[in-house]
């Protein structure tokens, strides 16, 4: 059978969601941001809540998320996305509100806003991309950079004695009574992408319950910052990032998951 006989509208099983704009993503080849953008937009489309959703972009590689997501969005100052989202959600309790933040934004400069929004139980969704490095500014150490991991500001590897330990924000916010759903996922294999999408979907569906904040961490690659090919960076991530940032649900329906 010829390929041309298969490529017909009635046989379509996967296409790019219309919730993404036509603009080419500004991310490096193989970067997980693109997948997470797409999953988030697919979830809005499937839940049919695009017209009721307001997104908050942050500062970092994903600062231009609003160029790619075909929805109403604002762009918050560095670290303040959850504060901006609080302002929106408090005024519009019936809208779906989410922030899209990297590890520098959420876990360093915005730590206070993150913790207090979680602690207040703000009823929105946080999507947190953790790639252990500052990608946008050129690969400097992030609060999530692993011990011994090289970056442009830790060229000999992160020395814990000097620079402290990486911070596990996701475990930390799971301890707060205001979070309802806390999970850590990845998007480097088809199975993981499908799981991550399910998690993002739950995180949006939870907003209907009004029971607190839903927090989805995605451990992702930064092949440019890590100075690897995209394929190698995913292998490195499995070998080095996942042992420190284990995947899976940490809190479901307001209850900590016991393993």
């Amino acid at each position: 059978m010829d390929v041309k006989d298969i490529i017909k509208p009635e046989n379509l099983v996967y296409e790019r969601t219309k919730n993404l704009t036509d603009k080419a993503l500004s991310y490096c080849p193989g970067c997980g941001h693109g997948v997470v953008h797409r999953l988030t937009m697919e979830v809005l489309e499937e839940l049919q809540i695009t017209q009721d959703t307001i997104g908050v972009a942050s500062v970092g590689c994903s600062v231009l998320a609003y160029e790619f997501m075909n929805i109403d969005m604002t762009q918050a100052p560095h670290g303040r996305a959850t504060a901006a989202a609080t302002g929106i959600k408090r005024c519009w309790p019936d809208k779906y509100v989410f922030t899209y933040q990297g590890d520098g934004d959420l876990a360093a400069i915005g730590t206070a806003e993150t913790i207090h929004s979680c602690n207040r139980g703000e009823n929105f969704t946080v999507i947190f991309i953790n790639n252990g490095i500052y990608g946008m500014t050129g690969g400097q150490m992030a609060p999530t950079t692993l011990p011994g991991m090289k970056s442009s500001t830790t060229p000999y590897g992160r020395e814990v004695e000097l620079m402290g330990n990486p911070i596990k924000m996701t475990e930390l916010v799971a301890q707060l009574p205001g979070t309802y759903y806390v999970t850590r996922q990845s998007v480097h294999t088809p199975a993981n992408v499908r799981k991550a999408k399910k998690a993002i979907r739950i995180a949006f569906e939870n907003q209907k319950l009004n029971k607190g904040l839903s927090f989805v961490e995605i451990v992702s690659n930064c092949n440019s910052g890590w100075k690897m090919t995209p394929v190698d960076s995913n292998i490195w991530m499995e070998e080095n990032m996942f042992p420190f940032y284990p995947l899976g649900d940490i809190k479901v329906n307001g209850e900590l998951v016991t393993k």
């Binding site: 790019r16 991310y27 088809p190």
Partner: peptide, 14 residues
């Protein structure tokens, strides 16, 4: 298509 970060691939099946 599921792992593609850039939405490059459209898939058909019969």
């Amino acid at each position: 298509a599921v792992v593609c970060p850039d939405g490059v691939l459209t898939v058909y099946r019969i």
